[in-house]
Lab assay of single mutants.
Amino acid sequence: MTVRVDGVDYEFSSLEEAVRFALKMAKSKGAEVQLHNGTFHVE
């Protein structure tokens, strides 16, 4: 599972870890999280 934040990809071994990271980053940026074909994008 890959989480992309500001064009940088972060790899996670589990969906749970990836979701937690994506939500944490989105909250800190006041951004939204989108899921596309198994890849999260924080914008």
Rank of each mutant, 00 (worst) to 15 (best):
T39G: 12
F40Y: 07
A26L: 08
G7R: 02
S13V: 07
F12R: 00
F40S: 10
K29A: 08
T39Y: 13
S14E: 03
M25V: 09
T2R: 11
M25T: 05
L35K: 05
T2C: 15
V42L: 04
N37T: 06
D6Q: 04
S13Y: 07
A31R: 09
T2N: 05
R20N: 10
K24C: 15
G30C: 14
F21E: 03
T39N: 12
F21M: 01
V8E: 05
S14T: 12
Y10I: 03
F40I: 15
F21R: 01
F12Y: 01
S14P: 00
V3D: 00
S28E: 14
G38T: 04
M1Q: 05
M25F: 04
F21T: 01
K29T: 12
K24M: 13
M1A: 11
L15Y: 14
G38V: 05
V19H: 09
V8H: 07
A18L: 05
Q34Y: 15
E17I: 02
F12D: 00
S13N: 09
V8T: 05
L35T: 05
V3C: 07
V42K: 07
N37R: 04
K27I: 12
Q34R: 14
R20T: 07
H36Q: 07
K27Y: 11
L35W: 13
V5L: 05
T39S: 14
R4D: 03
E43A: 10
L15F: 12
V8R: 08
E32D: 09
E16Q: 09
A18I: 03
T2W: 14
E43R: 08
G38L: 10
L35Y: 15
H41L: 14
T2K: 11
H36P: 04
L35F: 14
S28R: 11
Y10F: 07
F40G: 12
V19E: 07
V3M: 02
M25P: 00
S13P: 09
E32K: 13
S28W: 10
K29W: 08
F21W: 06
R4P: 00
A18V: 03
D6S: 06
T2G: 02
L23G: 07
M1G: 06
A18W: 04
F12Q: 00
E43W: 11
K27T: 10
M25Q: 05
A26P: 01
S28C: 15
S28G: 08
S13E: 10
E17K: 04
F21S: 01
F12H: 00
D6Y: 06
R20W: 07
A18K: 01
V5Q: 01
D9Q: 06
K27D: 09
R4T: 11
E11F: 14
E11N: 12
G7V: 01
L35E: 04
V42I: 08
S14D: 06
T2F: 13
V42S: 09
E32W: 13
E43Q: 10
S28T: 11
D9T: 11
T39A: 14
K24S: 10
K29H: 14
M1L: 09
F40Q: 13
G7Y: 03
V8N: 04
E43Y: 12
V8F: 07
A22H: 01
S14M: 02
S14K: 03
V8L: 07
S28N: 11
F12L: 01
E16K: 09
T39L: 11
M1F: 15
L15M: 12
F12I: 01
L15K: 07
H41C: 15
V3A: 01
V42W: 08
S13A: 12
L23H: 13
F21G: 01
E11H: 14
G30L: 07
E43M: 13
K27G: 09
K29Q: 10
D9G: 03
V5H: 02
V42R: 04
K24Y: 13
Y10D: 00
T2I: 11
L35G: 06
G30P: 04
M25Y: 04
H36G: 09
N37E: 11
L35H: 05
G7Q: 03
A22Q: 02
G38H: 08
Q34D: 07
V33H: 03
E16V: 09
E16P: 03
M25G: 01
K27A: 12
V19M: 13
L35Q: 05
H41F: 14
E17T: 02
N37S: 04
Q34F: 15
N37L: 10
L15G: 02
H41D: 12
G7K: 02
G30T: 06
V3W: 03
F21D: 03
A31K: 08
A31V: 13
H36K: 10
F40E: 13
G30R: 06
K29N: 09
M25D: 01
S28Y: 11
T39M: 14
R4L: 04
K24T: 11
V19W: 15
V19K: 09
Y10W: 06
A31T: 11
V8W: 05
Y10K: 01
V19I: 13
H36D: 05
M1C: 15
L35D: 04
H36I: 15
L15H: 08
K29P: 08
R20H: 07
L35R: 05
A18N: 00
L35V: 09
H41A: 04
K27S: 09
V19N: 03
G7T: 01
V33Q: 04
E16A: 12
A22Y: 07
E16S: 07
S28I: 14
K27P: 02
R20L: 09
E11T: 12
E43S: 12
V8G: 01
L23I: 14
S13T: 11
R4A: 03
G7E: 03
M1W: 15
L15Q: 06
V3N: 00
A18M: 04
E32H: 13
G30Q: 06
V5W: 06
D6K: 03
E17S: 04
V3G: 00
R20Q: 11
A18C: 13
F12S: 00
R4E: 04
F40A: 12
V33C: 15
T2M: 09
F12C: 12
E11V: 13
G7C: 15
G38Y: 09
M1S: 05
E17L: 06
K27W: 10
K24I: 12
V19A: 06
K29G: 08
G7S: 03
S13D: 11
H36L: 13
T2E: 01
